[in-house]
Simulated scan of single mutants.
Amino acid sequence: MRSGNEPVTARSPLRLRFWLSLWGLVWAAAGTAVFSLAARPGWAAACGVVALLAAVDLAVVVHHIHQGPHYQPGRDIPPYEPPRSR
C-alpha cells in the first residue's frame, strides 16, 4: 500500500539490524581476542571499538524491539500516520 508519505512513516527493519549487530559483535570480539594474542595492539583496539559500537547498537535495537508494535509492527498492522506536533 503506497500512501505517498513513506519517508515519514518508514519503519526500521529491527530484526535484521539485531542479527547484523550480533554478527558484527561476535566477529569484532573475536578479532579483538585474536589480535591481542598476536601482539597487534592497534588492530586489537580498532576491533574493540567496533565491538563496542556493535554492542551499543544491539542494546538500542533490543530496547526498540521491547517497546512494542509501534516501533516494530508486524505485517498485519497497516502504516500509521505520525503524531502531529503542536
Rank of each mutant, 00 (worst) to 15 (best):
L14P: 02
T32M: 06
D57H: 11
V50W: 14
V62P: 00
S21G: 11
P41E: 14
S12R: 08
P82E: 01
P78C: 13
H66R: 11
A39G: 07
A44P: 04
L37W: 02
G31V: 13
L25M: 07
A46Y: 13
D76W: 03
T32I: 00
V50R: 10
A51N: 04
A44E: 07
A51W: 02
P83E: 12
H63E: 06
H63F: 10
M1H: 10
A51G: 12
P13H: 04
V49Y: 11
T9C: 04
Q72H: 15
P69K: 06
R2S: 06
C47V: 07
E6T: 10
A46T: 11
L37C: 02
S36F: 11
A39W: 08
H63Q: 11
G4E: 08
A44R: 07
A55H: 01
A54F: 02
P83D: 11
Y71V: 01
L14N: 04
S21V: 02
L37N: 05
V60H: 12
G42H: 09
H66P: 01
R86Y: 04
A45P: 10
R86H: 05
E6A: 15
A46G: 11
H70F: 10
G48N: 07
W19L: 14
W23H: 09
I77M: 09
A33N: 03
P7D: 08
L20G: 01
V56A: 15
S85Q: 13
R75H: 09
A55F: 02
G4V: 08
L58V: 05
V26K: 12
A55Y: 02
P79M: 14
V60Y: 14
S85Y: 05
L52A: 15
V60C: 13
Q67K: 03
G74E: 03
P69I: 11
L20T: 15
F35W: 09
R11S: 02
L58M: 10
Q67H: 06
P7H: 02
N5I: 13
S3C: 12
A46V: 11
G68V: 02
E81R: 09
L14H: 04
P73C: 12
A29I: 07
H66T: 05
D76C: 00
A55G: 11
A54G: 15
A59N: 00
P82I: 00
V61F: 04
A38E: 02
R15A: 05
Y71K: 02
V62Y: 00
C47E: 12
W43I: 06
A44M: 02
R11L: 04
A45N: 13
P82M: 01
G31M: 11
A59T: 04
R17V: 14
Q67A: 07
W23R: 05
A54M: 10
A10F: 07
E6R: 14
G74C: 03
G68P: 05
P79V: 05
